[in-house]
């Protein structure tokens, strides 16, 4: 933090002190960079090893587990890309995530709107229902949920069968994040819209929805991440052709456990689309998580 002082000259008492601080700071920086490098190596190492492992043969991996690809082999990756199962899993993952996200965002913003901007007697009690919903993890309901969806609703091996309960469990967080967001939109907007003859529904469509874009993107990204990475519910509900990428990766790795390079290639390709999407949306994810933790 001494850098802050060093860049604000009006606060610095004397030149000598400043110089001393700076030199101390630079000594510290070498250590900081070294530590940062170690953290990066430990963080990325396993992921990179998996990606590079996909470019090696099993013989290379067995001979020198810690080595680099020599020569680089594309067969593993090509094999996965030619595997129709892989594309099938990716399609299922995408569709389930998109359905979940759409339901969460649409139902979430709809529910948050009256809870934020209408005055009515049951407002706080209904909001409490959503807040309490945060306390119920899907794990607790998983067994009856599995029975209900497969037997009573006959949605056992379908996209909707996974998306609907996922959306239900994502809604409390969505409403809790969105309500204050909608509350914060200035009252004058609503009045101006009223004077111009807009109904409350008109206000919702034409003014509130466009203005709450950033909030909706945040909750949407969180819902998408949650669905894309989900394992337990799909594990119980989806089989065969309907499996999602996490199920596909897990099954591939246990069915082809001898083919380490193939497992690495499959895993690496399964994580790339998600990784790109999530890193692009990093700010939104962090915003949402911070919203859940604090400012």
């Amino acid at each position: 933090m001494s850098t802050i002082l060093a860049t604000g000259p009006q606060h610095t008492p004397t030149q000598a002190k400043r110089a001393k601080k700076r030199s101390k700071n630079q000594g510290g920086n070498v250590l900081v960079y070294a530590l940062a490098l170690a953290v990066v190596a430990l963080t990325l190492g396993p992921v990179l090893y998996g990606v590079l492992g996909g470019f090696r043969t099993n013989a290379q991996l067995a001979q020198n587990p810690a080595g680099l690809p020599a020569p680089w082999v594309l067969d593993n990756y090509l094999g996965v890309l030619k595997n129709p199962d892989f594309w099938n899993y990716a399609l299922n993952s995408s569709m389930i995530a998109v359905i979940t996200t759409l339901i969460v965002v649409i139902f979430g913003v709809m529910a948050a709107y009256p809870l934020a901007r209408y005055q009515f007697r049951l407002r706080e009690p209904i909001f409490m229902v959503f807040v309490l919903g945060l306390l119920f993890p899907a794990t607790v309901a998983i067994v009856p949920l599995f029975i209900m969806i497969t037997r009573d609703l006959h949605m056992g091996n379908t996209w909707w069968g996974v998306a609907l309960p996922q959306a239900a469990f994502a809604l409390p967080m969505t409403v809790v994040i969105l309500r204050p967001f909608l509350m914060a939109l200035p009252q004058e907007l609503e009045e101006a819209a009223q004077l111009d003859g807009a109904s409350r529904i008109g206000f919702f469509w034409r003014i509130l929805l466009p203005l709450s874009g950033p909030g909706m993107v945040t909750v949407g990204v969180l819902a998408f991440v949650g669905s894309w990475n989900a394992y337990l519910l799909p594990l119980l509900l989806l089989q065969g052709d309907m499996r999602t990428l996490p199920l596909g990766v897990a099954d591939y790795s246990s069915e082809h456990s001898a083919d380490t390079a193939g497992v690495f290639a499959f895993t690496a390709l399964a994580m790339i689309p998600a990784l790109i999407f999530f890193l692009a949306m990093q700010k939104r994810i962090v915003n949402g998580l911070q919203g859940a933790v604090k400012g």
Binding site: I103, I106, F107, G108, M110, A111, Y113, P114, L115, Y118, F120, I126, V129, F130, G133, F136, V140, A141, I142, V143, P144, L145, I147, M148, L164, P165, A167, A168, F169, L171, P172, V175, R200, I201, F204
Partner: peptide
């Protein structure tokens, strides 16, 4: 209007969250 806006979320939560928990 309130009913229209809130009920989809509440129904979803009732069916896929509350009901299974009661069932458990």
């Amino acid at each position: 209007e309130i009913l229209f806006f809130i009920s989809p979320a509440l129904i979803l939560i009732a069916v896929f969250m509350l009901l299974p928990i009661i069932q458990a």
